[in-house]
């Protein structure tokens, strides 16, 4: 019972002194297996994502004519136009700003919920989790319409504020950026919560208990243990919401009342209204660059946190 068994000793010996060559051969074999297993996914990704993406990038260098004709070419016209016009810089800035604001607000309101879901020992935990993500079962369009009703000048918010005597004239909560941001925060909350719940892996009640036993009060436990350990989840969640926000087009269109100009709505207009697809493609590539920039920042930050 107390002495290590023969097998255990053998195992520790083998783990310690396995010759490097053998290890390398095994690693190579493993890599081949992984590659083989990944192949269907890679092919699928290639056909459904990379190929269309490549086509889009190629199209962004084509020459677009206002009548919808696309002339195969290699020209930077679309990029020059997008990047030399202050209007599009404004649109890019609007997009970025909207992503940051919605991302921050969404993470702020989702954080307590995610923390609760991770920590609760209630037997209804599964049910609560389902309730938190249930909004995903209805489409973003339906929920956006819901917000239009709630936020409208005769909507729930304005009429209750008015009946409480807090406002005289209805607040302008729809057909502007405010409405879009309110709607997006709610719409992306399930994503934020899900991402955080799965990103809170390093949190454990034992760590908080350990901090408590070492003399930390509730606030110190949160500030020194819970918050730092949940940061990777928070960052991933922010990234998720940011990316979803800057690429969403439905809610800005529906709740923005035509006054919210972001890259996604601009791309939509260029594609379906103006029929200048190369220009739309160039704007899409710019949007992708925005993604890339934020992902690079994200990776920097996670490396710093995960250290």
């Amino acid at each position: 019972m107390t002495a290590p068994t023969e097998t255990q000793q053998l195992m520790s010996v083998r783990a310690g002194v396995l010759p490097g060559a053998l290890e390398k051969a095994k690693a190579a074999r493993d890599r081949r297996t992984y590659l083989l297993l990944l192949l269907p996914a890679i092919l699928g990704l290639f056909a459904t994502f990379l190929l269309p993406l490549g086509y889009m990038v190629k199209m962004s260098f084509d020459r677009g004519a206002p009548d919808g004709v696309i002339e195969s070419a290699f020209t930077l016209d679309s990029y020059v136009r997008a990047l030399s016009d202050p209007y599009y810089w404004q649109v890019i800035w609007n997009t970025f700003q909207m992503g940051i604001i919605v991302g921050v607000l969404c993470v702020l309101v989702s954080y307590p919920i995610a923390l609760f879901l991770v920590r609760t020992r209630s037997r209804f935990r599964g049910l609560l989790m389902a309730v938190a993500v249930a909004p995903l079962l209805t489409s973003a369009i339906v929920r956006t319409y819901g917000w239009m009703v709630i936020l409208g000048s005769n909507g729930l918010v304005n009429s209750s504020l008015h009946s409480m005597g807090l406002i005289d004239a209805p607040l302008k909560l729809t057909n502007n950026m405010t409405g879009v941001e309110i709607g997006l925060v709610e719409i992306f909350m399930p994503y934020a919560i899900l991402t955080m719940v799965s990103g809170f892996g390093r949190l454990s009640s034992q760590l908080e208990e350990a901090a408590g036993s070492l003399g930390a009060n509730g606030f110190q436990v949160f500030a020194r243990i819970t918050l730092p350990l949940s940061l990777p989840g928070v960052l991933a969640s922010f990234l998720m919401v940011f990316v979803l926000t800057i690429s969403t087009f439905v809610t800005p269109t529906l709740l923005g009342g035509g006054t919210v100009q972001v890259l996604a709505t601009e791309i939509y207009d260029q594609t379906t209204g103006v029929l200048n697809w190369p220009f739309a493609a160039a704007l899409s590539v710019i949007l992708l660059a925005l993604f890339g920039a934020i992902i690079a920042v994200y990776q920097r930050l996670t490396r710093k946190i995960g250290g």
């Binding site: 034992q206 208990e209 350990a210 036993s213 350990l229």
Partner: peptide, 20 residues
């Protein structure tokens, strides 16, 4: 007395070292 005022030292089964 709350845990943080008891002045005890505890070693957990999982050690509960702060990973960050």
């Amino acid at each position: 007395t709350p845990v943080n005022k008891r002045g005890m030292g505890m070693v957990f089964q999982s050690y509960a070292l702060f990973p960050h």
